[in-house]
């Protein structure tokens, strides 16, 4: 599997896939996509990187432990739900606002953060599984 071509292409492929996964995540609310799919795409990206170049470069590139990313995602999703406390509406009620970034109106919502949380949980957990298995493969 670890041919020269594969090893050379893998980092670029991975970056592209991660970028694409974020795109899929963000368009998810209006078009096909969302946190689960985005997370799976990103996880496959890291798995490919791991197969091509070994596990330790992936771990270095991720910087955080994958399970930590997963945990942070769960926390983020839960916090997005808790936001509703401040507005005295039931847990996980979606809240919406529009902010202006560089003159462009951007819709922000707790639902978006919830979806990002889902994305991070899936990325973290699946990457962690894949890396753990790959480590056994090479170690």
């Amino acid at each position: 599997m670890r041919t020269l071509i594969f090893r050379t292409i893998a980092p670029y492929l991975t970056s592209l896939m991660v970028l694409f996964s974020i795109f899929v995540l963000l368009r998810g609310h209006n078009d096909p996509g969302g946190g689960f799919i985005g997370g799976l795409i990103a996880a496959s990206a890291f798995a490919i990187y791991g197969i091509a170049c070994g596990v330790s470069p992936v771990r270095r590139a991720l910087y955080f432990h994958p399970m930590a990313i997963s945990g942070f995602g769960l926390l983020l999703a839960a916090l997005a739900g808790w936001m509703s406390l401040f507005f005295e509406v039931p847990f996980l009620t979606g809240l919406w606002t529009t902010v202006s970034i560089l003159g462009l109106p951007v819709d922000l919502s707790t639902v978006l953060f919830f979806d990002i949380g889902v994305y991070l949980v899936v990325v973290g957990a699946i990457t962690s599984i894949a890396l753990a298995l790959e480590e056994r493969e090479h170690g």
């Binding site: 609310h29 996509g33 969302g34 689960f36 739900g81 996980l92 819709d107």
Partner: peptide, 16 residues
Amino acid sequence: HGRNIVNVIIVDFRGM
């Protein structure tokens, strides 16, 4: 406020 009904169900209506 979402057009992808499946995703809205997942992250909003059935968020719990």
